[in-house]
Amino acid sequence: MLASIAYPHIDPVAFAIGPFAVRWYGLAYVAGFVLAALVLRELDRRWKVGLSTDDMLDIVLVAVVGLIAGARLGYVLFYGVGSYWSDPLSIFAFWDGGMSFHGGLVGILLAGAFIARRKDIPPLRLFDMGAVGAPIGLFFGRIGNFINGELWGRPTDVAWGMVFPRAPGDLPRHPSQLYEALLEGLVLFVVLWVLSRRKREDGFILGMMIGLYGVFRIFIEFFREPDVQLGFIAGGFTMGQVLSLPMVAAGAWLVIRALRHGRDAQDARDSGADGAGSGADVTE
């Protein structure tokens, strides 16, 4: 066997009270939403959006529903390949894993558009606020995947390869869940947090978030084992990479759009200032 480090066997169940079991994967989602809500509150204060406590609670609750529903349905549609038809009720067993980020993104954007309309907030502004906190949830979610021993990487001979108990072949593999937690979680959050230090044109932060996520995901998929149901679906590319390509394009479009709007707004302000100055000279 190739050299590897021991996979830390962690019970997926954090604790149980009678028949009720609380899993680390579920706690990861709770931690992600709580910390993302704190980020939302800080950005509301800094950007002077004017959200009340009730507004914040409504936004978070709607986001929870949109994300979980979208992530689970996305997994079923993109990766299930009809396997859930034999046991339809298992679609609702999201605590066992099987959540799609791409489906969750669609779900939370639809939920965000709904609540933004109800609260009379520009949708892109709300999306920007949520985008800063999103990598926190991604970080905890990938840690949950690692604890569950799922979404493992491809076989490798690197010194930090791990033998995942549920993976076939008893081979050391890339701990790709940790790669994703690092890039899609910590690195992405730091970049967006720095960018959010000053308010930018609506849509800029969202564009950076989905664009960078797409780039990171495409890169990490080269180390992650393709989903067993699908394998490689387009040459040497996986479903995760195919779904991430439109994200990179959409992110680039949003960033360019925001920069263009910012430049146009600055030109308008400069023109107004020049016009005011010219008028003053004529009056004198």
Rank of each mutant, 00 (worst) to 15 (best):
L192G: 01
S196T: 10
F189Q: 02
P175K: 10
E201A: 15
L206T: 13
L186G: 08
M208Q: 13
R173C: 05
L182K: 03
Y179Q: 07
L206M: 15
G211V: 11
V187M: 09
E180K: 08
F189N: 01
F189A: 01
W193G: 02
R198H: 15
H174C: 09
S196C: 11
R198K: 13
F204E: 12
F189K: 01
R173W: 07
K199Q: 14
G185M: 03
V190I: 14
M208E: 09
A181H: 07
V190K: 02
F189R: 01
H174G: 08
S176Y: 08
R198Y: 13
K199Y: 09
V190Y: 02
F204I: 05
R200S: 13
L192P: 00
G203W: 00
V194Q: 14
L188H: 03
I205K: 00
F204P: 02
I210H: 01
G203F: 05
L183N: 04
A181S: 14
L192A: 00
R198A: 14
G185N: 04
L192F: 01
G185E: 02
L206N: 03
L178E: 10
L186F: 15
Q177D: 11
E201H: 09
L206F: 15
I205G: 02
S196G: 10
Q177P: 03
K199T: 10
L178N: 10
M209F: 14
I205N: 03
W193V: 02
G203E: 06
A181F: 06
E180I: 04
